[in-house]
Design a protein around this nucleic acid. Structure first.
Length: 835
RNA sequence: GCCCUGGUGGUGGAAUUGGUAGACACGCAGGACUUAAAAUCCUGUGAUCAGCAAUGGUCGUGCGGGUUCAAGUCCCGCCCGGGGCACCA
């Protein structure tokens, strides 16, 4: 995108960005081992990305062993026994015997194998923008038009590469039990995989044309079959027009056109109920007298289940609303569980109005219905996954080329010695013809039959952690000796935004490489900590839908507008620099006109993820320049808990800076020079030190860096108050401070007269001596309200405590005119008196 | 809409296990030093009521209920912010 906008080669801008980031990381004082640096866009790296892709292309998932295996073995099996024991994951209608397999042409065989490969080529729907000639992410589509240019967007079927991640669904679920991820993260991945057990049920169809005799619906609640009041099909199913009645057809066609212009996200997020009756009816398989109207609606997606649902309004909220909207009569099969106003998804009811199921508890009815369906040959138990295979090709320039040659319509792998397949130079970065990638513009490339799409950004990032273990190896992606030695990533820091993308893909790749014998572990990350995001403050302009007119934020009243991110650097507060905006993005907004308020264009504001695509990033450089790297580091830690997101705001950085200056003054006086001394510390000073050691040790251990920084501040304040400049104390302080403020710690270490580095000094073990408690403060409350504190020896008996409390003046005053009901001594921590 | 997550003073946040809510820092106010400023230091700072004051009372962790001797923390129902929802990765 940036290359198209600016005409610069992505390699150039990537290099520049890397240099900038490295520079910033160095400035902030991060200790990375740059000798292991890798670049996913470097041919020496992506030759192995391509190599791994070929392993995926050359493998299938053996359901019996639940492992990936070379596809050559499968070919041999087909020749001896057909696919009887290996049902086709890509298309379960494909069945053949050994004899039939041998009779297939080479091309037919290849097509079948493609249905088994872990990396395969298939067809899928994308957001297509004809005017731009490109595919767009849902993110880039606003109100059915492209963010860039405001052109119409619609669905288009394109040939795409996919990774068969669905075959690994169960393994990915099981693996979660072996890793230390947060429960929230595990839950997100589990929900994404979305394993559900239910049934597929075939419904007979009654339609005018009568060409389509039936359809299959997927449901997780077969027990509610007698409560089906209507069915809903996904509008994009190919046979919808074949079942529509003459009367309904115009409405159906109109509705399909409407859905085609909608992104999947918009469809799911739609609050309004939309849909259209097809004029066809389904027949309840257990009661042929029940004619069930068949609708289409955007909330049913073709990609999930069978793209058809049976709707039970008394048990499902969305079905209920749909039934109300279209005034479909509701059958109540759960008796008193249904109040007529809210659907109740209970599984506890005893079925009513359900013919042969009457009187059965729902849980039992599930298996009864499935058994009956199987007897009748019109249904079966079915495990379904919400997750779909991962789209793995992009119609873009800047990505790894696929090591694939098309020969007579069949995809053929390049050999290992032909890798890397280098990304060629192009004249322009714009799209190729017919929705193909930019590589399709290169005649030499297409003449060789090479695949013209490229791999997505996540290809290289799905295995980079393995390459760190053996970054310069030019004979293998990572020597097994190296991966055995380093093993899993001990601690992985990343944001939750990667929950269902990167973190799932890298788990998949690791599992496949494990199955194929290239690794000894099958989970890449032993422990995962989610750092929160530092968010940016974004600015928006509002384009009147279908025009080049931009309307100031305060003047929008009802017009349909497309909200577009603008670079925060072009906005002063909330006021847009309209001249700069016109020149922005290589003149994309040259023709923009503005509707101003009080002579100004006012932008919309929102706090969201800091991101290049949102143009709301800020740089640490200025702060590092002004306060130094240590202040910046400590401030980031001081801001709040690591796992919490918050907008970037430099209010308060002064406090951290002040702390470091104050620390400095314990060692050094501007006029007198070094002021530390070698005197023996007093018990009081040691107590301050060791309390701090304990606090910082435990805070650091549990990643509570913000409270650790606070503890440093308290410690320095206390030492200042005590006028303590003793070397023994200061040394210990510096050792703790090293990870927090390495530059300052190192310099002060030298001030203390050391010739070695503070890094060489070992972390002190916590000495209980000075913090050990001999007595404890007990809060005393009356009716739960705090009244006073009393100090008791740790070994005081409960009876002695009770006596002492009752003799206390404050307590006596409270008990004076009210009788005590109860004396409670809770968990040895708290004393409460009930009056 | 669905999944995840969060909501505490003027602000960022603390309270690790249901047990003294507001640590630490910013900001603000007052003061010291200074010709002045910067820097530094000291004092105060949730709201409200009573009191000259010391002090004391009441309220208070998004909203409404509940459990408990005791709720920021647990339960139920809402509201709002953030992340994700398959071509950003």
């Amino acid at each position: 995108q940036y290359a198209i906008e600016t005409g610069q080669h992505p390699a150039t801008t990537t290099e520049k960005n890397i240099a900038t980031f490295k520079n910033q990381l160095d400035k902030i004082g991060f200790c990375y081992d740059w000798s292991r640096e890798i670049k996913t866009s470097d041919p020496e790296y992506y030759r192995w990305t391509q190599w791994i892709f070929l392993q995926l292309f050359g493998s299938y998932f053996d359901r019996q062993t639940q492992k990936a295996a070379p596809i050559a073995g499968l070919e041999k099996l087909f020749a001896t026994e057909g696919n009887h024991h290996h049902p086709c994951p890509g298309d379960d209608r494909i069945h053949f015997s050994a004899a039939e397999w041998k009779a297939y042409t080479d091309k037919e065989q290849q097509e079948i194998l493609m249905h088994y490969r872990l990396a395969y080529c298939g067809y899928g729907e994308v957001n297509w923008c004809e005017a731009l000639g490109t595919v767009l992410a849902n993110d880039e589509v606003i109100n059915g038009v492209s963010e860039r240019g405001g052109h119409p967007v619609e669905k288009k079927t394109l040939r795409q590469w996919y990774l068969r991640i669905t075959q690994y669904a169960d393994r990915l679920l099981e693996g979660l039990e072996t890793v230390e991820f947060s429960d929230a993260m595990k839950e997100m991945q589990t929900n994404w995989i979305g394993k559900s057990t239910g049934a597929e049920i075939e419904f007979q169809l009654i339609s005018e044309q009568n060409t389509v005799k039936s359809f299959t619906a997927y449901t997780t609640r077969p027990d509610t079959i007698m409560g089906v009041d209507f069915c809903v099909l996904a509008p994009e199913l190919s046979y919808i027009l074949d079942i529509s009645s003459t009367e309904q057809k115009p409405a159906v066609e109109k509705y399909i056109a409407y859905v085609k212009s909608r992104s999947e996200r918009e469809r799911m997020a739609e609050k309004r109920i939309t849909g259209c009756f097809t004029g066809a009816f389904a027949v309840n398989p257990f009661d042929s007298s029940k004619k069930i109207p068949v609708y289409i609606s955007e909330y049913v997606l073709a990609g999930y289940g069978t793209g058809a649902i049976m709707a039970v309004p008394c048990g499902d909220e969305r079905d209920y609303k749909f039934a109300q909207f279209f005034e479909i009569p509701i059958t109540n099969i759960i008796g008193a569980f249904f109040d007529g106003e809210n659907a109740n998804p209970t599984k506890e009811a005893v079925l009513e109005n359900s013919g042969f199921l009457d009187g059965l508890p729902m849980r039992k009815a599930m298996t009864v219905v499935i058994d009956r369906l199987m007897e009748m040959g019109i249904g079966k138990k079915k495990v379904n996954y919400r997750m779909r295979d991962a789209a793995f090709s992009r119609q873009r320039y800047w990505g790894e080329p696929f090591p694939i040659v098309w020969k007579d319509g069949a995809a053929t792998a390049l050999t290992e010695n032909q890798l890397p397949l280098i990304l060629p130079e192009v004249d322009k970065y714009g799209p190729g013809p017919h929705g193909e990638g930019p590589l399709a513009n290169i005649t030499d490339w297409t003449a060789r039959g090479l695949e013209t799409s490229t791999m997505p950004g996540y290809a290289g990032s799905s295995w980079y952690f393995l390459r760190y273990m053996d970054p310069n190896n030019d004979t293998v992606f990572c020597d097994k000796k190296a991966s055995d030695y380093w093993n899993q990533v001990d601690l992985y820091i990343g944001g939750t935004e990667h929950a269902v993308g990167h973190l799932l893909y890298s788990r998949l790749w690791t599992k496949i490489l494990f199955d194929l014998g290239f690794l000894s572990f099958q989970e890449p990350f032993k422990r995962l900590v989610n750092q929160g995001m530092i968010q940016g403050s974004s600015r928006f302009v509002y384009r009147v839908h279908g025009t080049q007119e931009f309307i100031s934020a305060g003047l929008i009243s009802g017009q349909q507008v497309d909200r577009i991110h603008v670079d925060v650097n072009m906005v002063d507060g909330v006021e847009l620099d309209t001249a700069a905006f016109k020149k922005w993005k290589n003149g994309e907004f040259e023709k923009a006109s503005f509707v101003l308020e009080n002579g100004k264009y006012i932008c919309g504001v929102e706090v969201e993820k800091m991101s290049k695509s949102k143009f709301n990033t800020v740089n640490p450089d200025i702060l590092v320049e002004r306060f130094g790297a240590d202040t910046f580091r400590m401030y980031e830690m001081f801001l709040g808990p690591v796992e919490q997101s918050k907008p970037w705001d430099t209010k308060g950085i002064e406090g951290v800076h002040r702390f470091l200056k104050k620390l400095w003054r314990l060692f050094f006086d501007d006029l007198k020079g070094p002021i530390w001394n070698a005197d023996a510390p007093t018990p009081e000073e040691l107590k301050v030190l060791h309390k701090t050691i304990q606090k910082i040790e435990s805070d650091t251990e549990r990643f509570s860096f913000n409270t650790a920084v606070s503890a440093f501040m308290v410690c320095v304040n206390d030492l200042t108050d005590l006028k303590c400049n003793k070397k023994e104390i200061l040394e210990q302080l510096l050792i703790m401070l090293t990870p927090y403020a390495p530059h300052v710690a190192e310099e002060l270490w030298q001030v203390l007269g050391h010739s070695s580095s503070v890094l060489d000094a070992s972390f002190p073990s916590f000495e209980q001596k000075y913090t050990k408690e001999s007595s404890k403060n007990y809060p005393v409350s009356i009716n739960g309200k705090m009244r006073t504190n009393l100090e008791f020896p740790l070994d005081a008996s409960p009876e002695a405590v009770e006596q002492a409390v009752l003799n206390n003046e404050v307590v006596k005053k409270w008990l004076a005119d009210k009788p005590m009901k109860k004396f409670i001594f809770v968990k040895g921590k708290m004393i409460n008196i009930v009056i």
